[in-house]
Structure formats: structure tokens, C-alpha cells
């Protein structure tokens, strides 16, 4: 198990993606969004609670017929789509990462308070930080795997591709309370909200595939709406 802090400047934030989720391009970003984005970026640079943890499990079985993954002491009903993506994995890396309580609280405070528009910009930035933290974990795992001539898959999370979000509880049980301060509500919602968890396959025969929206069943997702344009 490896838990670590991540500095904001270690992350590769895709600002084009952030701006596109706001509904603009970097060349036509009007006020107040340009100032709001600068404010959110400046705030994010000082974050000290971006953290990540991962655990690699060696004993794995991918049961793609039943859409199930067995990893050490737990079995996860990940669904056939995720099973297909993980096929060939000899190890599975489970991870949790968070943009931290500071930015999550800031989003909530603004969204529920005096400036929901600014709150939404922080919210999008918080999501981008959480995703970039996931990218960082993926990068570390890839480097480690390549030393042993392994390859890795893309990352997959409960709640996506028909993987029941309730499995979060089982996934978190792998970390024995070393969860970067991320906790789960009974309904499996992560807190701080700007956190992600999931699994990455490792093996000689696995394939890294981009994560297209067609894999996911969420038809009303804001990302799908934007990418369709």
C-alpha cells in the first residue's frame, strides 16, 4: 500500500477541458468566467491536502462471464464492460485519490451561498484536480509496471459502466482505513466529494484503451453532452 501527498504543480490539469466544461473555449472565455477561473486556479495552487493511495493485489480472477472480479479477499460486481477492459490482468491496482476537503468545502460554500457561478467554476476545477490525481497514480503505476515489462489498463470506477457504486464499500475495505481522509456515506458517496476511486489492471496482455462515452450508460452526463458537440 502506498499513500502520498500530491502537490498541485505535479498535476497536469487540462485547462482546455475545464473551459470546455464551462461551455467555452480558451479563446472566447468571457468575464466573469476568465477571472473566476484565475481565482480557482490561484486557490488550487495552495492546496495542501491533495492525496492519493493505491494497493496492488496479486491474487486476482476476472470472471467476465458473470461480470465479476475477485481480488484477494473481496469480490466485486464490476459488470461485463469493466471485466472486458480488465481481461488479462495479472494484478489489480486499487486506488483512492482526493482533491481534498479544502476545495470540496469551498465549492459547497459557494454553490449554496452567495455565488453559485463561481462555485460551479471551483466545482469543475475540483473535479479536474481529482481526475489529474488519478492520472498521476496511473503514471506512477505505468512506470513501475514497465520496469517489469508489464502494461496497464485505463482506470475504471464504481458507478460507471454499470459497476454498482455500492461496491465502493468493498473497495475501501482493501485500504484498512488508510484512505487519504476519504470516507464513505452509507449510500457510498465519497467525502470529500472531489475524490475518485477505482481499479487499474496490470499484466503482460492487457490493453490501454481510451475511455469513450459509449462505454457508459449515463446518457445525461454533462461530459457526454459537451463531447457530443
Amino acid at each position: 500500500m502506498k499513500e502520498f501527498h500530491i502537490q498541485f504543480d505535479e498535476l497536469v490539469i487540462d485547462l482546455d477541458e475545464v473551459v470546455s466544461i464551462l461551455g467555452f473555449t480558451r479563446y472566447d472565455l468571457p468575464e466573469p468566467f476568465a477571472s473566476y477561473l484565475q481565482e480557482a486556479l490561484h486557490f488550487s495552487e495552495s492546496l495542501q491536502d491533495i492525496r492519493a493511495v493505491f494497493r496492488i493485489v496479486d491474487q486476482v480472477k476476472i470472471d467476465d462471464q458473470h461480470g465479476k472480479v475477485i481480488a484477494g479477499e473481496i469480490d466485486l460486481q464490476v459488470g461485463r464492460t469493466v471485466c472486458n477492459e480488465l481481461n488479462g490482468s495479472e494484478r489489480l491496482a486499487f486506488f483512492i485519490c482526493t482533491a481534498g476537503k479544502t476545495i470540496s468545502d469551498k465549492c459547497t460554500q459557494l454553490l449554496q451561498g452567495e455565488n453559485p457561478v463561481l462555485g460551479y467554476v471551483y466545482d469543475v476545477m475540483g473535479s479536474a484536480i481529482a481526475e489529474a490525481s488519478g492520472d498521476r497514480i496511473q503514471q506512477i503505476l505505468k512506470q513501475d509496471a514497465e520496469k517489469e515489462t508489464y502494461r496497464i489498463t485505463n482506470r475504471y470506477s464504481p458507478g460507471y459502466c454499470n459497476w454498482n457504486v455500492a461496491d465502493q464499500h468493498k473497495l475501501f475495505s482493501l485500504f484498512q482505513n488508510i484512505t487519504c481522509g476519504v470516507t464513505l456515506t452509507p449510500s457510498a458517496l465519497m467525502q470529500p466529494v472531489k475524490s475518485i476511486s477505482g481499479v487499474i489492471g496490470i499484466g503482460h496482455e492487457v490493453t490501454y484503451r481510451e475511455y469513450p462515452c459509449t462505454l457508459c450508460s449515463s446518457k445525461q452526463c454533462v461530459y457526454r453532452r459537451i463531447r457530443q458537440l
Binding site: 466544461i21 461551455g23 453559485p116 454533462v222 459537451i226
Partner: peptide
């Protein structure tokens, strides 16, 4: 119709 996104709706709501 995906002609505007959440931030623009928030501005209208404001």
C-alpha cells in the same frame, strides 16, 4: 438543445 451549459444557466438564474 446543448446550446448553453450549466454556467450560462446559472448566470440566467442569477
Amino acid at each position: 438543445e446543448n446550446k448553453v451549459f450549466v454556467p450560462q444557466v446559472l448566470m440566467s438564474a442569477k
